[in-house]
């Protein structure tokens, strides 16, 4: 990382204006979440986050992430292989379709699942006859979250798998490696940072999704309420401090994920100093 020739003053101006932007747009909101959360002291914060409804919401949220993230990882890697390693007509359309959930308003995303599985939806009567609950139940929340987070892993992997080329894999094949051996020994090490980054973003979004989940959850407290919905409920009950306490848990999830990413990169850089290129 060598700096380009620039006067110390220009450099200082650049760095500080970037920092001011980051501070105004990102840091201040983050800090204010924690200030509001601890306004009533640590005791009040702890009471808010250990309330049975908050704990139930936390469990549901983690459970949703524990299902959605692995599914996205598998689908993302498979999609990365098909769309990153091969050229064929229609490829750019498929990539756009994977991107599409980014472009769907979360509110609309929730509506889609109502239209599919709601009582008057396409599969609603069929499910109703069999007593199966999808919408207004954890299943519906999982499906809506899967839709919203679908692009995250694949979107990170496809460009990287394309740009890293096929030569290494082809060489491995020539040397007699099987498909899985090639994948785990050659491809995976090349994409692991992009994969990790995708997993982190996917996890963060799965945990924090509000709009889509709000439409399909039914808001039954202690049953179909996720953490972000619990925040909204508490806020609407004029319990601002409790709302921000629960929100601070979500901010912590975000921060922990980011620290994991930073540590993993650092650890790996120390082990393979020459492995820097193509990181991320």
């Amino acid at each position: 990382m060598s700096a380009r020739p620039a006067s110390p003053f220009a450099r200082f101006a650049l760095v500080s204006s970037a920092l001011v932007l980051v501070a105004l747009i990102l840091v201040l909101p983050l800090i204010s979440v924690f200030i509001e959360a601890f306004r009533g002291g640590v005791q009040a914060w702890f009471e808010a986050v250990s309330h049975p409804d908050a704990v139930a919401a936390l469990k549901l949220t983690l459970w949703v992430a524990a299902i959605v993230v692995p599914v996205n990882v598998i689908l993302g890697v498979v999609a990365g292989w098909a769309l990153g390693k091969f050229e064929f007509p229609g490829r750019s359309l498929l990539i756009t379709l994977i991107d599409l959930p980014f472009a769907v308003s979360p509110v609309v995303a929730g509506l889609l699942f109502i239209l599919l599985f709601g009582r008057r939806g396409w599969f609603g009567p069929w499910l109703g006859d069999r007593g199966l609950e999808v919408i207004f139940a954890p299943t519906g929340i999982i499906l809506a979250t899967l839709f919203v987070t679908f692009p995250f892993v694949a979107r990170e992997l496809i460009p990287l798998m394309q740009s890293s080329g096929n030569e290494e894999e082809e060489a491995a094949r020539v040397l007699g490696a099987g498909f899985f051996q090639t994948f785990f020994r050659v491809t995976l090490p090349n994409i692991k940072w992009a994969l990790l980054y995708g997993i982190i973003l996917c996890t963060a979004r799965a945990v924090g999704e509000f709009g889509a989940v709000s439409v399909v959850s039914g808001h039954i407290r202690g049953q179909t309420n996720t953490l972000p919905l619990e925040v909204e409920i508490l806020y609407n009950e004029y319990r601002t401090q409790a709302a921000f306490s629960v929100a601070s848990l979500l901010a912590c999830v975000a921060l922990v994920a980011l620290v994991v990413k930073a540590l993993a990169r650092k650890y790996s850089n120390e082990r393979h100093r020459n492995d820097e290129k193509g990181v991320r």
């Binding site: 609603g124 109703g128 207004f136 039914g218 808001h219 039954i220 407290r221 609407n236």
Partner: peptide, 20 residues
């Protein structure tokens, strides 16, 4: 007894769409 709260219209729509 379980509770669900929200805007009145939104809640009615949820019931119509299958909230039990």
């Amino acid at each position: 007894i379980k509770q669900s709260h929200g805007g009145s219209g939104k809640q009615a729509r949820s019931v119509i769409d299958g909230l039990g």
